[in-house]
Design a binder for these strands. Structure first.
Lengths: 131, 131
DNA sequence: TCGAACCTTCACATTGATGAGAAGGTCAAG
DNA sequence: CTTGACCTTCTCATCAATGTGAAGGTTCGA
């Protein structure tokens, strides 16, 4: 598949796909004429990367956890070094902390919105009521 | 409290605190001599903001959900307009989507790390085994 | 008085993109 | 085979967001 087609299928742009390649997020082959040649699986991979970026993860972190996200899940045995394991554990725990923070704040926003909707109905907010 | 003290108590820098003020994330009074004068509650607020930024939320979103995070939780009745409610619901749902994405990927990283550790023990990974 | 802390303001760095230009490849119609 | 539309290549420039650094001046506190 060429770059234009992948851009279309992932709702991105050729420019962005070249950028991701430059950043080491995707690996891309070349055709005889020098054009980039994309595997079908890149559609899912790029979509996945977009999701992670939109979730606020920086590319350097995404780059490091990419091997974890391969589908079909295959273990890269060369990764089983203490250093890589420690790095990934760090990333794993960082993700857990992010999730905690976002979960707490999601709850706070949800509560607040619920209370606001009570106000909008002309009702005093009642801590014991649902939405 | 002056800027240096708040910086110390929040493990940030005076520079960053001025930046947050400039971005509208915190509101700061002034002493007669022109020095910034920070309320004690800013310690918690700044810590909270740091957490949200580290979790990947952009300042413009944080700015909008700040009223939801006040402690003690007080409803700003003026916020009970359909527009503000709709905006906050959008933010709330965006947070939920972020949490979903991060949760899925946290699980993937955790699984992968678990498998790697099996490899590191010289054992073939077994899908049915725990960490 | 003197150094530390504060003030404002301008400039720079990094990240995640995006735009524009110049050059060349591909392919179908004429 | 040539033309033209459309694709690709690369490179340089630009943008917004999140900070950081430093210059030049004021105020504090010992």
């Amino acid at each position: 598949m060429r770059i234009g087609q992948l851009a279309e299928r992932t709702e991105t742009t050729p420019r962005l796909l070249r950028y991701y390649e430059e950043q080491g997020l995707i690996r891309v082959g070349r055709a005889a004429n020098g054009y980039r040649d994309y595997d079908d699986r890149l559609v899912d991979q790029v979509t996945h990367i977009r999701g992670l970026l939109e979730a606020g993860l920086p590319t350097r972190l995404i780059k490091q956890i990419l091997p974890c996200l391969d589908d079909p899940r295959e273990i890269h045995f060369a990764d089983a070094t203490p250093e890589i394991i420690a790095t990934l554990e760090g990333h794993r725990d960082q993700l857990a902390r992010r999730i905690e923070v976002l979960t707490r704040n999601h709850a706070a926003v949800a509560d607040y919105v619920g209370a606001l909707k009570q106000c909008a109905l002309g009702v005093e907010p009642d801590p014991a009521s649902g939405d």
